[in-house]
Amino acid sequence: MHHIKISDIFSKMGQVVYLHFFRYNQHRFWAFTQMQRAHAGLQDCKGLQFYKMLGTGAGAGFSLRPDFSTYALLSVWDSEDDKKQAFASSPVLQAFFDRSATQRIYALRPIHTHGKWSGQSPFVVQKPSGDKPIGVITRETLNPLRLIDFWRHVPQASQAIKEAKGVGFFKGIGEWPFVQQATFSVWESAEAIRTFAYVSQAHASIVKKTRERKWYKEDMFNRFEVLSEEKTPLV
């Protein structure tokens, strides 16, 4: 197993949230099968409150084309100790590191949440420090009757975030292709997000159409402070 330096920043906190991206050069078919097969092993992890195995979109991520080289794991834990113990002892979690070529790991503190994810509210909002980058996860279950209309507008949304100022990383993620979609983005500040939300005409147009055309059966919007970001191997 690769030796990963895991942040101790959560050590005196309660609930902890991590988002891992695993990129595979080899073992891509194995990684694809873990979208289903990993559940049995993950459900045995002590202290794991909530998790989602996620595929990703090609390119920047906002695409109908899947990225079969990259998969993500969103996990919410009772404590940092539970998370560390699971990653040290779980064969499933160890295999993700052993078989992937690179990893990108975000430690996140929830500071705002609205909506439901599979009928649940998994994130416990905590007091922000105000001096860290902001991570945003949006997640939607699409209305089957609105799929074509929604996906026709995805290129517009993708271009808007590509042109946004203050965004450092963004990737499309999701549980099921075409129907259950999510995005993760990292911004230099809350002000950068507000500027994008209120100044970008393309973004405002998408938000308006979302409401008018009832694209979503279920949706969720979450903001996090990014407590740490690790890329391994370091390049």
Rank of each mutant, 00 (worst) to 15 (best):
Y71E: 01
S11E: 14
D44H: 14
V136K: 08
Q159T: 03
L48A: 07
T138N: 13
I134A: 05
L48C: 07
G135L: 03
T113Y: 07
S129F: 09
A101V: 00
D219L: 04
D8Y: 10
A88L: 10
L64E: 05
H153T: 12
Q201Y: 01
L19G: 06
A38V: 08
E218Y: 01
D78I: 02
D81I: 08
S129Y: 07
L142Q: 07
R223A: 06
M35W: 04
Q180T: 11
E175F: 03
D98Y: 05
A72E: 04
P144K: 13
E225Q: 10
Y106Q: 09
A72I: 10
A72C: 03
N143G: 06
A164L: 04
K116H: 14
P155H: 04
A107D: 15
H20G: 00
P110F: 06
Q159S: 11
K162M: 13
A38K: 11
L142K: 12
W117N: 03
S158Q: 08
H153C: 02
F184Y: 09
A182C: 07
K127N: 12
E163Y: 03
I111P: 03
S7Y: 08
Q15F: 13
A204Y: 03
D219I: 00
G61M: 03
V76T: 04
R194P: 09
Q34R: 15
D81Q: 14
R146T: 03
M35T: 12
A60V: 10
A95R: 15
I161H: 07
S185K: 00
K83S: 12
A31N: 03
